[in-house]
Amino acid sequence: MNVRARAGVVTVAAAAVVAVLAGCSDSGDTPDVPTIAPQTPIAAPVVEAGAPAGQVVPMPDAGGALAYCSSTEQVAVLSADGRSVQFRPTAALSTPTRTVGLSDKASGFGTFANGVLQVLIPHALLRVNSATGDVVRTDLPGTPLSAVLTSQGQTLVGNDLGQIAVVGADGGIEKTISGLVRVDALAEHNGQVVALDRAQSSVTQVDIGGDDLGVALRSGDGATNLTVDHFGRFLTTDTKGGEFLAFSGDPLVNKFRYPVAFGPYAVGYDDTHNLAWVATTGDNKVTAYELASGTPVQTRQFTTVGQADSMVVDPDSGTVYLLSARGEGLQVIDPDQQ
């Protein structure tokens, strides 16, 4: 019997506000607040639940991170050792068009747009051009954990010091906003910016213009990942507590908390079919939910490659891409397949 179908749904109008301290560029102090050990993905079972759905492209040396570029229709794949990036067109995924070596071990990716990929390495953000292989470096404090290219053309980079650096189009740092413990994920929609802090299991509004932090809300007991859909709903996974959550509005409010078993981790949204996708590593599944009713309704579920820690969704076709962190390849799922 499906655990998700049996579980009850908890819908709330708001959640408890997390006490965080807001600071500006000259502070850099970590707030004195209760913290938890940042949650990591639940280990996938050794015994598979069945053959992975869709197409699986062998990539034994990949598994570090995954990104998708709509304008060039290609994916970027980080090697398992974090030392190189492969660019692969979605029409011919089996062969990379370009491989770019990195100056240091990367921890992940930011936005991949207009053929340029943001790569996070210690003390710097790299912008890698997929067409030429050229790399532009911006030196930054701390270890970058997240990055996002905003609709205003700025790049926001979150680090392990709880700071958000605002980087202009020229690569220069315009300002730094402090006050979080860590900035593990960033998302932006029409100028509204939200940061996820795994150490506080919280989501926090960020006022870029005012150099300050806004409302902060708990996101379960062990939040890990964040995305935003075209309606402006910020969607998070609580891996430790087993929940899928949504936040929206200004100020931010919690719209629902939905129980999801087996360690929800990667999260994405299909703007074409209006489906939220959540990958659960504890059972090697990925599940699609409709959110039109205000609470998630499961519509599809597929078996994934083992340890699918990374997921991206093509917003135009709805195709779901999942990358195995243990070398089992890149999986491609058509959302309309049975």
Rank of each mutant, 00 (worst) to 15 (best):
L140G: 01
P141F: 10
G142I: 09
G142R: 04
P144T: 05
S146A: 15
A147F: 02
A147H: 02
A147I: 03
L149P: 00
T150E: 13
T150S: 14
S151D: 15
G153I: 08
G153W: 09
G153L: 10
Q154K: 14
Q154G: 03
Q154I: 03
T155W: 06
L156S: 04
L156K: 03
L156H: 01
V157M: 09
N159V: 05
D160M: 07
L161P: 06
L161W: 14
G162H: 01
Q163D: 12
Q163C: 06
A165D: 11
V166P: 02
V166T: 10
V167D: 02
V167L: 07
D170T: 11
G171T: 09
G171D: 11
G172K: 12
I173W: 09
E174P: 00
K175E: 12
K175F: 11
T176N: 03
T176C: 05
T176K: 06
I177E: 06
I177W: 08
S178F: 04
S178Y: 04
S178H: 07
G179N: 05
L180V: 03
V181N: 04
V181Q: 10
R182D: 09
R182K: 10
V183G: 04
D184R: 03
A185F: 04
L186S: 02
L186I: 05
E188A: 14
E188N: 14
H189F: 14
H189V: 07
H189W: 13
G191Q: 15
Q192D: 14
Q192R: 14
V193S: 04
V193R: 00
V193F: 09
A195P: 08
A195H: 08
A195G: 09
L196F: 09
L196H: 00
L196T: 02
L196E: 03
L196R: 00
D197Y: 07
D197W: 03
R198E: 11
R198I: 02
A199K: 00
V203P: 00
V203I: 11
V203G: 01
Q205P: 00
I208F: 13
I208E: 13
G209L: 11
G209C: 12
G210K: 14
D212A: 13
L213K: 02
L213R: 00
L213W: 10
L213F: 12
G214L: 06
G214I: 04
G214R: 08
V215W: 08
A216D: 12
A216T: 15
L217G: 00
L217N: 04
R218G: 15
R218F: 14
R218E: 15
